[in-house]
Design a protein around this nucleic acid. Sequence first.
RNA 1: GAUCGCGUAGCUCAAAUGGAUAGAGCAACUGCCUUCUAAGCAGUAGGUUACAGGUUCGAAUCCUGUCGUGAUCACCA
Length: 583
Amino acid sequence: MSKYYLKSIEKITKKCLYDLYKINYNFKLNFQYKKKSYPGDITLVLFSLSKNIKKPIKEIGENIGNYLTNYFNGLIKYYIINGFLNFIFLDGYYIFLLKNMLNPNFYKLNFSSKNILIEFSSPNANKPLHIGHIRNILIGDSISRILSSVGNNIMKIQMINDRGIHICKSMIAWKEFGIRNTPIKTKEKGDHFVGRFYKMFHLIYDKEIKKKSINGKEAPILKKARILLKKWEDGDKETIKIWKMMNKWVYNGFKKTYNELDISFDKTEYESDIYNFGKKIIENGLKNGIFFKKKDGSIWIDLKNEGFNNKLLLRSDKTSVYITQDIGTAINRFNKYKIDNLIYIVGKEQNDYFKILFTILKRLGCIWVSKIYHLSYEMVFLSSGKMKSREGQVISADDLIYQMINMAKKKLKVQCKDYNNYCKTIGLSALKYYFLKVDPSKKIVFYPEKSIDFKGKTGIYIQYTYSRIRSLETKFFEECNITDNYNLSHSIIWDNIYGKNIIKIIKKYPFILKKSAKNLNPSILANYIYEVSKKFNNLYQNKKLIDPFTPIKSNNYMNIIHITGNILKNGMNLLGIKMMNKM
RNA sequence: GAUCGCGUAGCUCAAAUGGAUAGAGCAACUGCCUUCUAAGCAGUAGGUUACAGGUUCGAAUCCUGUCGUGAUCACCA
């Protein structure tokens, strides 16, 4: 039997449990990869096993330990302490692991093959994207890549909220105060141009309330916006014309921002295309007694049993609200596409909203509700508190991207050919890694005055590590006179732990990828990539890796280095970060 | 007020879903560039995991309570 075909310790343990105790372990095997103060490279925690097997812990440990050391003859050792079965890898086992990693199948995971629709970004067509959208977009993009890499078929979709009272707000402000201006005339980015009028609307609105000390609903400018909304829904030609024009300005702006971020969507949906379908569903639901009508003609659903207030579905003037459209969208998607799952990436402030949406869909008889998932992420706070886009307390996505690229320009030491792309890649690496390394369920506090770091645990650190690796490889082939591919000598033994540490951590890659995919959490992967980089830099700074006088040893190192580079590239690409061969 | 989150080093974040002595980065302080990229490496210091109970072989993680903090509760989106 060639050692190459040996299976991992984890797999053999499963076989062992069956052989010894006739257990088809359908419970989880509690393996730990973390090395603590006790020597050992992988640990099996025995407590939970002993509950299932009902034998003394020590006996079980010794039986498993003996079984495995026999199987991996001469490759591993074991010892037991306090209910922990510790395995120690010997040199041969590292070679075996390394050979497995050199096989391209090591990177390819195929454990799921679903059709998954992922909705993210979902901007309003009345103002530019801000720092919160950036988090949303980066999480969405990265999860799409991760899910795709484990075998799924992904469709990235953005829903643009292009209709409703908020759109009419910027429209009415423009009509009254800016009708002679266009983004071309003022040389503004279209989304920022329109956003200015949205902000202006609220300034005027606040003034009116203050001045006339009236109820918010009575503010003249809001009344005008409402009339405009009604006109829009009635298909008034002039209104539609302005609406189309202003939306186009905004979309052009979005397009530039997405381009800067290297983000693309497979499909874009517009609320305006679907809201009528949503309205029909509400009206049908009313006929079937799922919803009820108030005296003023507005339509509602009773959610007392679910612990929520009654929810409005259609206004008394027959114009639709946000959820009208969302009900229609969900139903439409399941009718139109063959999908196994639908994932919404939307901030946690809408947790209840999604619970309500799912409840309504269930009441409407949609059996596929269980296939929908709301991936909720925490908000981005500024150090000064919560962002308020109406009051202008926001950091726009464009500003942030611009800032990052500028910082890269300042730090660039060497002249390079592709200056602009270089700075963009550096800036974006820092930006994307900064957001993705944090668990989506945790909030991010952003300090505009501190800006995003370029040293320490950052995307730049990983870029730097990666470019070291690639330049080492080039140098190796030049200096060691080896022209064919890497050769794995059978007698690899290093005089240090650095190489072994790298092998151990890379061994975890499939596990990490799987975990990231299952939890829809890119931060697991992001933190892991950093650990890998760190292990490599330990080696790099402490050992001379390329030496023309000892080409075999250098070659052995190169195997590890090569894999490390591949892992970094693979992993970072899954975060949506491009890697550079030179820095 | 009600409901749902969150609380880990001065700051920003980890911690294998209940495992062994809670780890990194920033900031501070020491060292290391004539030698493969110092955007780096080696080290020092920094913790009663908000607090109090409970569950068990074992808790930052699960349960209860208290305090702090955030989100949601609109004919807004």
